[in-house]
Amino acid sequence: MRRTGSRSNLQGMGTLVFMLVGPIVWTVHLTLIYGSQSLLCALNLGEDRSAGNAAIIAIILVATAVCIAAVGFSAARPGFVHALIARADLPADQAGFIVTIMRVLAWLSILAMLYAGLGAVILPACGQLR
């Protein structure tokens, strides 16, 4: 065992972020769809199905597609994405563990984004359900 330098700590931070790519993108997705829906409903653009509701559905569908694509790409090309974030290769003896955690979290996040985005296409955006 050898000691390591300061660069490895920044790479370590990058690796932690890499493992959390799925949930981080899910956070962005939540903010985008919940924020835009609240905003458009507040501006009364959501009351008319032909205008605001369509805008909300479009935003949610685009956000969902882009976010799922980003997470799916990360799960499919983990080495590339890790190098992009951590500016280093995956640690050789840790790669299996790190990639497995990252991938399962990614698939769970994709499921959560699909599940959340589904509401937009089957429910009125701003109507009160009671």
Partner: peptide, 26 residues
């Protein structure tokens, strides 16, 4: 990890009866 993250996306379920849009409820 997943529970830690996803738990931040649930807070509105304590406010279902406050009168929020149906899409938020869903």
């Amino acid at each position: 990890i997943a529970t830690g993250f996803f738990s931040f996306g649930l807070w509105v379920h304590h406010m279902f009866t406050t009168g929020i849009p149906g899409l938020s409820l869903a």
